[in-house]
């Protein structure tokens, strides 16, 4: 029997993991686990998550991990990194945590060029709380709090995080958007975001477009269609800022 390779940095007693079937978090965390292994940083990595679906990763890795309130994983990671710069800090959050309730932390940690790595999973809704509208909900998309579809006239347009972070960050920052539909690219971006912290260049951020069939109420085919044909055209994938390549990787 062939079993799929499991990253060494995964914490096996908590597997199989607790995410819904079809959820993209597992893919992101698999890529992240492989990158932690390849960079050999498991022992000095501090993984942090907040509340929301990303919470379910609190005991996911065989790395020291800590969990905090919705939106607050960024300042907790900043506090750890500022006091122990030798540690590698990974803040893991959803779009609500990063772009809404914790947006002041995201913006200001980016401006200060905090040497932390932040991974934000964008599934266009608040999953854990039952599928409400998120800052990333697409125009016209139905959610529990936009049952007739998101109306940009009254609720604005979806937040484009990497685009605004690329504007406010300084030299040395790494900003990218990946998608769970392009695994090798996702892994490469996560690796760059961690390399950037290891080398002490600056702030590192990767938004990952992900899937939420439970709250989208989609089957497998519809799920993939929404990710590739609705989300990806709206949220272009690529490196927006990188110390490793001049023009970025589109």
């Amino acid at each position: 029997m062939i079993t799929p390779a499991v990253p060494k940095s995964w914490y096996l007693p908590t597997k199989p993991h607790k995410f819904c079937p079809g959820c993209g978090h597992g893919i992101v965390l698999k890529a992240l686990g492989e990158v932690i292994d390849e960079l050999e940083i498991q022992d000095q990595t501090i993984f942090g998550c907040d509340i929301g679906c990303s919470l379910l990763s609190w005991d996911f890795f065989a790395c020291d991990s800590t969990q905090t309130h919705h939106g607050r994983t960024i300042p907790v990671m900043v506090g750890i990194k500022r006091s122990r710069p030798e540690l590698i800090t990974i803040g893991y959050m959803g779009d609500g945590g990063g772009y809404s309730i914790g947006s002041q932390h995201l913006l200001n940690s980016a401006v200060r060029n905090e040497k932390v790595t932040l991974i934000l999973v964008n599934n266009t809704n608040y999953g854990m709380t039952g599928g409400q509208m998120a800052p990333t909900t697409l125009p016209g998309q139905k959610t529990e709090t936009s049952p007739y579809g998101r109306d940009p006239e009254t609720t604005g347009y979806p937040t484009k995080g990497p685009e605004f972070l690329a504007e406010v960050t300084s030299e040395g920052a790494y900003v990218a958007r990946a998608t769970v539909s392009k695994y090798k690219q996702l892994k490469r971006f996560l690796k760059n975001a961690l390399r950037n912290q290891i080398e002490g260049n600056g702030f590192s951020f990767v938004e990952v477009l992900s899937t939420c069939p439970t709250n989208w109420r989609t089957n497998a085919q519809q799920t993939w269609h929404f990710l590739e044909d609705e989300m990806e055209p709206y949220f272009p994938v690529g490196e927006l800022k990188s110390p490793f390549s001049k023009g970025g990787d589109k």
Partner: peptide, 20 residues
Amino acid sequence: LQTEDEISAGFTVCGAVQAG
């Protein structure tokens, strides 16, 4: 570190003390 607000000041302290 001068943080962006008091929420952040409190949570950075939480992070720093967890780091020892």
